[in-house]
Design a protein around this nucleic acid. Sequence first.
DNA 1: TTACTTGCAAATGCTTTGCGAGCCG
DNA 2: CGGCTCGCAAAGCATTTGCAAGTAA
Lengths: 139, 139
Amino acid sequence: MIDVKKMCREKGLRMTGQRNIIADVITEMSLNGHPDVNEIFLNANEKDKNISIATVYRTVKLFEEYGAIEKHEFKDGRSRYEAIEDHHHDHLIDIESGEIHEFTNEEIENIQRAVANSLGYKLVDHRLELYGVKIKKNN
Amino acid sequence: MIDVKKMCREKGLRMTGQRNIIADVITEMSLNGHPDVNEIFLNANEKDKNISIATVYRTVKLFEEYGAIEKHEFKDGRSRYEAIEDHHHDHLIDIESGEIHEFTNEEIENIQRAVANSLGYKLVDHRLELYGVKIKKNN
DNA sequence: TTACTTGCAAATGCTTTGCGAGCCG
DNA sequence: CGGCTCGCAAAGCATTTGCAAGTAA
């Protein structure tokens, strides 16, 4: 996983107290999840009462523009974020629990590129989300 | 493409004047696009001034629940709809023009199912969108 | 110092909903 | 008739933004 604070600082983003805390919170929460803005806000605000949700919105947008975090819009309506990881991956969402699993599949990536080309396009972005229910073993 | 009006009627949905018009409009517009609620509203309202946007929202939700139309939420923020087609397909969106192309790829479908299974899940839904830019021939 | 940031509250944009009137079966 | 629908306007929700005060470099 990349270092959000470091990357932003190196790219010239002014790192304020709020931004540092928000970067820490996102990094931390990315370890086991894909937090939405409100969850990020709650955690950040706990560490510094002087952080508003407007700042969280402005900051995640900046971090995303600086290529330090990634935004996802799954079917639950809100935007979720995670620190950029070293390798690209897609997601499988448990529609019963909301649990999110990551997976990588090079084959799908290749076919996507081929499909885009066959339609006369250069693939610049994509979205692949699987929605499923846990398979129960004993029945 | 399925017959929206017929399917809803057969499944017992009360077909009012407004619903019939909205069904017609969506069927028509599905022939060459993926209209959003406002576009559907503008067309429907033209045929019958007595159709409000609230009714369009309520109606597309119903049609979707009755399995007659499909809802898509691409990265442009609003919901887009299209009459259900005979064969499943995914979409490639031209990020410059907004143009939407449909494609089918059985291989990707199979891999998705396999990936879900390998994670212990039964695939019940998925979302695959490609975003690209047109390849220009002469340069 | 000086441009960039922030918190607050107001404004957005899309979508949903309460309510009383109207319509379908 | 009786419940389902409708239009209207108000309400919701997530997100954005104007502004005056505060802050990093």
